[in-house]
């Protein structure tokens, strides 16, 4: 049995009158690929923000490798091995692609020097199939390229847990296939992955387990095939049409 690497314990987050996260608990096991789904405004991004120290929860705890990290700052999360990508990509626009990735290696991945960080960054760009853009400014990349840059930057931080906030949003289907392949390659390295995703195609093909968030609450949890047949999930998020299609496939396949 593998061990728990990251756990949320009864997390609550209020923004004024909004209960963005409502008494939420879950755990990620080492090496797992888990999908987090739910309608817009469900609290998915907020949850990632709580796990990486961007917000302090109103109450509850975050535990990483058994240690209480609830009050960590984002840079501390990064150095511990909790990396995340942003739903709205956040490059350093006037740095080159290589320098962007080197920043991850230097500060999050504890590279001993700027030169060593550049070397790590080069390897990472190779791995992420971005090597030909190394010397371009980050702002010159297409959206798909910038999303991949976010991935490369996070990977350069040598993460133990990687949280991907809608890395496929806005991409076309061949770009999505490319991204999927890269995420699988990352998972093969044994990194625990939490993917936030609206595309059920991606969820179904990637995730071993799915968490469903609605109004800040965890309304369902289970294997992808179970989830698409869960009546609560269908009602809150997927819709009946979808359930008929995917549920049918799951039942047949």
């Amino acid at each position: 049995m593998s061990t728990t690497i990251l756990a949320a314990e009864r997390l609550n987050q209020r923004f004024g009158g909004i209960q963005a996260i409502d008494d939420l608990s879950f755990a990620l096991k080492e090496g797992e690929v888990v999908a987090l789904i739910g309608p817009n405004g469900a609290g998915k991004t907020t949850l990632v923000n709580l796990l990486t120290g961007v917000h302090q929860p109103t109450s509850g705890r975050v535990r990483f490798e058994g240690v209480d990290v609830t009050s960590q700052k984002p840079y501390q999360a990064a150095r511990r091995g909790l990396a995340r990508t942003f739903q709205i990509v956040q490059p350093f626009p006037r740095m080159t692609v290589l320098e962007n990735v080197a920043a991850g290696a230097l500060f999050g991945g504890a590279s001993p020097s700027v030169a060593a960080a550049m070397d790590t960054a080069r390897e990472q760009l190779e791995f992420m199939e971005l090597a030909q853009f190394a010397d371009r400014p980050a702002s010159a990349l297409t959206l798909a390229g910038r999303k991949r840059l976010e991935l490369a930057k996070s990977m350069a931080m040598r993460p133990k847990v990687l949280m991907l906030d809608e890395v496929n949003a806005g991409l076309n289907s061949s770009e999505i296939d490319g991204a999927l392949r890269l995420i699988r390659k990352i998972a093969e390295r044994g990194i625990t992955i939490l993917v936030i995703e609206h595309l059920m195609k991606v969820v179904m093909s990637l995730a071993e387990r799915v968490l469903v968030l609605h109004h800040g609450q965890l309304i369902a949890e289970g294997g992808p095939k179970e989830i698409v047949r869960n009546s609560k999930v269908v009602e809150a998020y997927l819709g009946q049409k979808f359930a008929d299609r995917f549920g049918g496939e799951a039942a047949n396949g």
Binding site: Y75, Q90, P91, F92, G109, V114
Partner: peptide, 26 residues
């Protein structure tokens, strides 16, 4: 300019939240 400090400051200048998220102690 050549050190970790200069690199981190440039990250802060370009995107402070992203800098913190890659591990810069802003």
């Amino acid at each position: 300019d050549r050190s970790r400090l200069g690199f981190g400051l440039r990250c802060i200048q370009q995107n402070e939240d992203a800098a913190n998220m890659v591990g810069v102690n802003n």
